[in-house]
């Protein structure tokens, strides 16, 4: 049993703290469009807010004394503090890292940084990223296996695709996932699509 819930609709008649909802007078309302499936609220669209521990893909845009500034598809650039992360980066290079710290106004520090070689960077809605990764990375591993490409997905909505393998196939599969993110049995749908178009 599933139904689409819109902002302002009652999700539960009791207090529940779930992503994409807000509580007033003991009643839980939706604040973004979402899907209520098996008593679970899944936000369908949601502007991204960085969280500690999120994996991110970014582009190095500036070099300062304190560290590197990284474009993370956020309102403001993130920082790789060179004091904590001993790494030397090139401007315009792409990196994969973990969010180490977020302050109260949303400034982001990145840790555990790895350099990414030349590849293609694409932007997807951050609310669709969980579907692109799938349960225990099932979806992502499937795409990697069949296309032979190396794919890194950031929770911020940036996706890096390596030059080896079938890059076109990866992008088409991602497009399919984004368009059908709200449907069930997506892994099978994508498996079928990849099989037909490999």
């Amino acid at each position: 049993m599933e139904r689409i819930v819109l902002p302002g609709d009652v999700v539960w008649e009791r207090e529940v703290f779930a992503s994409g909802t807000w509580v007033k007078d003991g009643i839980t309302y939706a604040k973004v469009p979402g899907m209520l499936r098996d008593e679970k609220f899944i936000p369908l669209e949601m502007a991204y807010r960085p969280k500690v521990g999120d994996n991110v893909v970014g582009i190095v845009v500036d070099e300062r004394n304190a560290g590197y500034m990284v474009d993370l598809n956020l309102p403001y650039n993130g920082v790789i503090p060179t004091r904590k992360v001993r790494i030397s980066l090139r401007l315009g290079g792409m990196v994969y890292g973990k969010i180490a710290f977020v302050d109260e106004v949303g400034n982001v520090d990145i840790g555990e940084v790895d350099k990414l070689p030349a590849g293609k960077l694409i932007t997807v809605p951050a609310s669709k990223v969980p579907r692109i990764i799938g349960k225990k990375s099932s979806m992502l591993n499937q795409i990697r296996d069949i296309s032979g490409s190396s794919v890194f997905v950031g929770n911020n909505g940036y996706i890096w695709i390596g030059q080896k393998g079938n890059m076109q196939l990866v992008m088409k599969a991602l497009d399919l996932i984004i368009r059908r993110a709200h449907t069930t049995g997506l892994t099978d749908q994508v498996a079928k699509y990849l099989d037909e178009n490999r």
Binding site: P7, K31, V32, P33, E45, A47, P125, S127
Partner: peptide
């Protein structure tokens, strides 16, 4: 705004 996923209390 709803389509953009901007949190809103009501429509």
């Amino acid at each position: 705004l709803a389509n953009a996923g901007i949190p809103m209390k009501d429509m």
